[in-house]
Design a protein around this nucleic acid. Structure first.
Lengths: 236, 236
DNA sequence: CGATTTATCGACCGAATGGTCTATATCTTT
DNA sequence: AAAGATATAGACCATTCGGTCGATAAATCG
């Protein structure tokens, strides 16, 4: 038996640029510590190869026509194997990086990066880590914070501006909650053990306090102002 | 004038551990390229100092009693100055890191890290970059992906299960969209230049397709099944 | 204690809603 | 050409909705 004692990790490459594909294969073969078990120039073929060889890691180009890289990540993860995906891209598009990481890519490297860094990234990912070069993680975090900036600003504004929902009495909240389930006045009356007239009185008060004219608008206001999620709201 | 030609960046420290506070001040003074303009052992005092000295960067301890670090970040950002916040913590708590970065911390370093790395982090942040050491960004990404895992899984499930909204014809969608704004039949009729009877016919068809009995339930179904965000939905 | 808020209820009324049945004109699909 | 889906519309009717006025009782607040 002339085999290595330590089995090499299986690597699969997907990239629509065949030259680049061949280049990486060559690089990894020279390195000698990886087995490139397959290459594909599109996701469809790649998926079949993954099913067949169950590689430890897939280097997946993000910038491909038709079925793009993001979709590819999702479909690979849908296979249910524990194949890791290392995203490859020619550009440091923050949005692309963000979305790729969000849906489960274990790393993201640029094609322009040095071979040594690519090797390192592959090793890290295979070892169960997540690897994003400093330059890219920087872009990622800018985008990440930007995408949450509105949310944070809104939360601050929400805290400042008085919520009309706070004007409601307990009983009115109960009525509103039932209204948001599309229950009729008669139904609300029987659920709360009060008369239909009383329900109507409460509803009228609710409308005035929320400054709306009908139940649909009241329900919309309630939803948009966190009435349903009120009790489960996060602090920061 | 014996002043330096290049003005040193102003640094402010907030940490409830006074010894640690003094230690960092000493370190930065020795370094000679920073001006420590103030120190505070709680956020309240710190905020006043920030208002007074408008530092370029604040080193803010995350693990403080009472008003905690996260709240501190929010309040500093609320001041509207462009003071950057570098979070300090004794532990690599993924949740804390995630939330701190989410609400706008420009970096996050552990107290156990080497002085040189702290200096480097401060410099990076002052230069407008976001700095997260590899070890912490790794933790961050694990947490990040975990928190999106459910969302992704749900999105896949959503794609599988047929959405009753897809049964609607174009015209019915238009009608439903107006219904979700709480517009009356008469109003919908005039907006779509059709008779009220026709609106009612469409509405009836909508109810049957969505398996509901009234407009409130229809609106709720629409919202819960992404009707309003349908056109702006992200692909992956 | 008097004033205010809150919760309850009745009666009356007009407008809006929802259901059903029928019917016509287009347009697509088989 | 026949069948099916779609958009349009009228007639009729019961129910629901929303508004208004007034009224009682309990609780709270100053």
């Amino acid at each position: 038996m002339r085999r290595e004692f330590k089995k090499n990790p299986k690597v699969l490459l997907i990239d629509d640029n065949y030259e680049h594909l061949a280049g990486i294969r060559e690089l990894l073969n020279l390195e000698g510590t990886f087995d490139v078990v397959g290459i594909a120039t599109n996701v469809t073929v790649g998926l079949n190869l993954i099913k067949k060889y169950q590689p430890d890691i897939v280097l997946l180009d993000m910038n491909m026509p038709e079925r793009d890289g993001l979709q590819g990540i999702l479909e690979i993860s849908k296979l249910g194997l524990d194949t890791k995906v290392l995203a490859l891209s020619g550009y440091d598009d923050a949005d692309l990086i963000f979305r790729a990481m969000k849906i489960g890519a274990k790393g993201y490297v640029l094609k322009t990066m040095a071979s040594a860094q690519l090797i390192y990234a592959i090793e890290e990912v295979i070892n169960g880590k997540i690897y994003l070069p400093l330059a890219l993680s920087s872009r990622f975090f800018e985008y990440f914070q930007k995408s949450f900036k509105e949310e944070v600003a809104k939360k601050e504004a929400d805290a400042d501006e008085e919520n009309l929902l706070d004007e409601l009495t307990q009983r009115e909240e109960e009525v509103l909650e039932l209204l948001t389930q599309g229950i009729t006045y008669k139904g609300v009356a029987s659920k709360l053990f009060i008369s239909e007239t009383t329900v109507k009185t409460h509803v009228n008060n609710i409308f005035q306090k929320l400054q709306v004219n009908d139940r649909t608008q009241a329900v919309l206001y309630a939803i948009n102002n966190g009435f349903l999620t009120k009790k489960v709201r996060i602090s920061a």
